[in-house]
Design a protein around this nucleic acid. Structure first.
Lengths: 209, 209
DNA sequence: TTGACAATAGCACGATCGTTCGTTTATTTT
DNA sequence: AAAATAAACGAACGATCGTGCTATTGTCAA
């Protein structure tokens, strides 16, 4: 591993921290150079432009998410077990990601949604891949007989994304300690609504007399 | 209405548009002065500091939301009718608010969640009030017998906020035209899960044989 | 160990940032 | 209409922004 890639990695790590608290627009070359102990121009040479730096940071954020949340659950059996583990891992990531601030991808999603360009394409791709992962996870649960046939897995992914956003708002913006409870209960309701008919007798939602 | 308040209102209107596309951090005094046809210093004098300008813009955004979404539904009967109308109004607001970009409050919620200060307090207050409105709306539906007794109205609000965020991501970032369908179906599932037992026989979720 | 090359520093640039100040122009009140 | 006050301007400030250059330093293979 040559010197170049090593410092580049260090820069990206520091950039992730900075971006998690100050957002993509708060990620400034001067500030980043100061925190990494490099000169502005020395740091700049690694990326060639601000936009390429931003793209690199977004990709680094995705890689970090994959390492911390996605990869660990791939060892688990397909279907509900993997999906449940992923959910728990995701909630943990959202509450306390390996950065001082919140999840950079979530923040960037709302920051960039009205500004077409390379950056929005990058973040949109990330969100599409995440949704596809959830959708496929739900589909596996259907195949395995955990979830009922005919479940709309795309809608399932949509709902799960919503829970994640609501969690960030509750836990980070409002700082409510019981936020994680709501997340788990909302998720439980969603899962119970998707279960096969064999398991559909339990849960808060069923008040059929 | 004196001259001062009139131009101040014009400034805030333009500021809302600018903020909806470029975020709070993209709301710059120079740019705003250019768009309103004022000089930088002339505009600046209206607020005294950048932070006070930002606070004023956040408050203006709340007032706008109240006018467009909250107030119209207060004429409707309490309980489910009002709640349903609010939902439809909110989805419409999220998809196409009266600004060129997306909902500024949603964007600011994720932009500011890690930066304590006046601005975060302002936006956190806005979100708390919104949640309280939803919670009370659900509570009225319980009182009216539309929703089942014992419904957790706080959780209900949490879930609804999640749907709204997921909608913004789907419709604005990903640009999927069918996004509104998912919103409505997710909302329908949530409502059906909250109905009183008299209505609980219908809907996608019930596959009890 | 030296020569080739990658990595970093230093400096300067035009632009824009938020902010202050003194002045001038509009508006309102007397 | 004149006096008093409010509103807007123009110019400048130090700071920082992203981005070019030209050196200088460091790293790695021959």
């Amino acid at each position: 591993m040559s010197k170049g890639v090593r410092t580049r990695a260090a820069i990206l790590g520091e950039a992730l921290s900075l971006m998690s608290t100050d957002g993509l627009s708060g990620l400034t070359i001067g500030l980043l150079a100061e925190r990494t102990g490099l000169s502005k121009s020395g740091l700049f040479a690694h990326f060639g432009s601000k936009e390429q730096l931003q793209v690199a940071v977004l990709q680094e954020a995705q890689a970090c998410f994959t390492t911390h949340v996605i990869r660990p659950v791939l060892d688990l059996p397909r279907g509900l077990p993997r999906l449940e583990a992923f959910a728990e891992g995701w909630w943990a990531w959202n509450r306390s990601p390996p950065f001082p601030g919140g999840c950079p991808i979530q923040a960037a999603s709302l920051e960039l949604d009205d500004r077409p360009g390379l950056l929005r394409d990058e973040i949109a791709g990330a969100q599409r891949r995440l949704r596809a992962f959830i959708r496929q996870g739900a589909a596996m649960a259907v195949t395995a007989g955990h979830f009922r046939p005919g479940l709309d897995c795309t809608l399932f992914a949509f709902q799960m994304v919503g829970i994640a956003f609501a969690q960030t708002m509750t836990c980070r913006l409002l700082g409510e300690p019981e936020g994680l409870d709501f997340v788990r209960r909302a998720w439980r309701l969603q899962v119970e609504g998707a279960l096969g008919s064999a398991h559909n007798q339990t849960g808060e939602m069923n008040h059929v007399e």
